[in-house]
Simulated assay, not measured.
Amino acid sequence: MQIKPRKIWEKGTDLNKAWLEYATENERQKYLELNNHKMEFGNDIGRNIQLVGNLLNRPNQIENLKDELRNSLIQKLKKGDLLAFGYSIYPTLAGVASRIENEFWMLATCKWENDEAHSRFKAYHRIKIINPDLFPDLDLIPEIGRPSKAAIREKAILRCIDKIPEFELLTHKEKAELIRAEIKEENPDIDPYGPGYGDDVIKKQVNKILKSI
């Protein structure tokens, strides 16, 4: 069974709320406790001083935890544990919601308060996060033909960048071999040494992506 992306989008959680919504129960509780500014002072001066110190440090603790929870959300989106739907604003302005690919999150930066995310090549707003378990019987991502060779290369390159910290330091030949291995793993029926997957074309696309990071 298929369902229109708009219907899925409507059941999602705004990006700026999803990092807390999809945190663990312990993480949520910790965040809520940090935001509870109620403190009870007593006659113990040493304890009171400690409480004041904790209070002054609380904004930093809140921001650090918020960053951790947001990063955790991005990791879940990269792996596909959660799905994102939004409205494209670049390179084309869309009037309908669409699925945001997992690979987008590898190089994306978020404007959390605006429910927006941007990368070098794409940008979305009105982003909502979906738990795929809400749609166990639905075909969320129907296949519509094979992606272009450029899209296949880009996906493999982004995966290599994400998985290999020293990727940028490798030789062009080493990068190309790793990218071809990634292409073959994701697309067993593709010849990663065939037309469209030569060293020169891979090198150009790698350089373009690395410059955008």
Rank of each mutant, 00 (worst) to 15 (best):
L134A: 11
D81N: 14
K66I: 04
P192V: 03
Q29R: 15
N16D: 03
W112V: 08
I152E: 00
H172W: 12
E154M: 00
K204R: 14
S119Y: 07
L73H: 05
K184A: 01
S88M: 04
I141K: 07
G46R: 13
D200T: 14
K30P: 01
Q61C: 10
F41V: 06
K4A: 06
N48V: 01
R146Q: 04
P91V: 04
P91R: 06
Y22Q: 01
A150Y: 09
E68F: 14
K76G: 03
P142T: 06
K122V: 01
K203H: 11
N43G: 10
D199E: 15
D189E: 13
A150V: 06
K175E: 09
W19A: 02
D14V: 01
M39D: 10
L83W: 10
K66Y: 12
K211F: 08
G95M: 04
I179P: 01
K76M: 07
G53F: 12
N207Q: 15
K122W: 05
R70L: 14
G196Y: 11
E143A: 09
K149C: 04
L210F: 11
D139L: 10
L73R: 09
E68K: 14
E177N: 13
F135C: 04
E113D: 14
P188W: 14
A84V: 00
Q50F: 12
F135L: 06
L93T: 05
D81E: 15
Y124H: 01
I157Q: 02
K78G: 00
E27V: 03
S212G: 13
K11H: 14
N187A: 07
F135W: 13
M106Q: 08
E182P: 00
L138T: 14
P165D: 12
R180F: 08
K79M: 09
H37M: 13
P136F: 11
S88V: 03
C110H: 09
K208W: 03
N71I: 01
T171V: 00
I45F: 11
N114R: 15
D162P: 01
D115T: 09
E21K: 14
L77M: 07
A18Q: 05
N64E: 15
E116Q: 06
N35F: 07
A23Q: 11
K173P: 00
S148A: 06
L169I: 06
W112S: 06
G80T: 08
K4R: 10
I161T: 02
P91L: 05
L73F: 11
G196F: 10
L169G: 04
K149A: 00
A151K: 00
L69R: 12
P5W: 15
C110F: 13
L51Q: 06
G95K: 07
K4S: 04
G194A: 02
E113I: 10
I209N: 05
G12E: 03
K7E: 15
I144G: 04
D137I: 10
I129P: 01
Y22R: 04
N36W: 12
N187M: 04
L32Y: 10
K204V: 07
V96N: 10
Q29F: 15
L134H: 14
R153D: 02
N60R: 15
Y124W: 11
Y197R: 07
G46M: 10
I130A: 01
D200Q: 13
Y90W: 11
C160N: 10
E154D: 04
M39H: 12
N114G: 03
K203F: 11
R47I: 11
F167M: 07
E174C: 02
